[in-house]
Simulated assay, not measured.
Amino acid sequence: MNTQSDLKWIPLTGIQLRKAGVQFDAVRVDGDEGRALADRLAHMTGGAPGPVVEEATGRRGVYFLVTVGSTAYRSWPPGVTRLTAGPHHISYIPVPALNGLTWPLTWRYRPTSPDDRVHTLLLRAALHSPE
């Protein structure tokens, strides 16, 4: 993996919120369903699904970091939340540091390069594939 300095959108320590529509958008699926989806996607991609962040508290959201604009004009099933930006709409995506104290966020799957993103069409296929 590249060094921390190559991944400028990841904080050096702690957690930061990143505005959707700048470096990436996100798709959030909560709870065990989100974790199972991340693992299905990892299986489909040989263990490299792209960056996926998970939350340990609340709804236990799982955030799939996708290319800006790639979720638009596609139907998404109930339980999927798109975090995007547009006219009169701003979303923020939580991003943990690669190391150190970041609770309640952790990387389920770390990014492998500065431009690494979850492939939106593969994510949709994993959503609709049998478990």
Score class of each variant (00 low, 15 high):
Met1Ala: 15
Met1Thr: 15
Asn2Ala: 13
Gln4Pro: 07
Leu7Lys: 03
Leu7Cys: 08
Ile10Arg: 00
Pro11Gln: 11
Pro11Arg: 06
Leu12Met: 14
Ile15Lys: 11
Lys19Gln: 13
Lys19Gly: 08
Val22Pro: 01
Gln23Leu: 10
Ala26Trp: 00
Ala26Cys: 03
Asp30Cys: 09
Gly31Met: 02
Asp32Pro: 13
Gly34Cys: 02
Ala36Asp: 14
Asp39Trp: 07
His43Ser: 12
Met44Thr: 09
Met44Phe: 15
Pro49Ala: 02
Gly50Asn: 10
Gly50Pro: 09
Gly50Arg: 07
Gly50Glu: 08
Pro51Leu: 06
Val52Trp: 02
Ala56Ser: 12
Ala56His: 10
Ala56Pro: 05
Thr57His: 06
Thr57Tyr: 04
Thr57Trp: 04
Arg59Gln: 10
Arg60Ser: 04
Gly61Glu: 00
Val62Ala: 01
Tyr63Gln: 07
Phe64Thr: 04
Val68His: 00
Ala72Ser: 13
Arg74Glu: 09
Ser75Glu: 04
Pro77Arg: 12
Thr81Leu: 01
Arg82Leu: 07
Thr84Phe: 03
Gly86His: 12
Pro87Gly: 13
Pro87Asn: 14
His89Asp: 07
Ser91Ile: 04
Tyr92Phe: 15
Pro96Asn: 05
Leu101Val: 11
Trp103Tyr: 15
Pro104Asp: 05
Thr106Leu: 11
Trp107Leu: 05
Trp107Lys: 03
Arg108Val: 05
Arg108Asn: 06
Tyr109Thr: 01
Ser113Ala: 14
Pro114Ser: 11
Asp115Val: 05
Thr120Gly: 00
Leu123Ala: 09
Ala126His: 03
Ser129His: 13
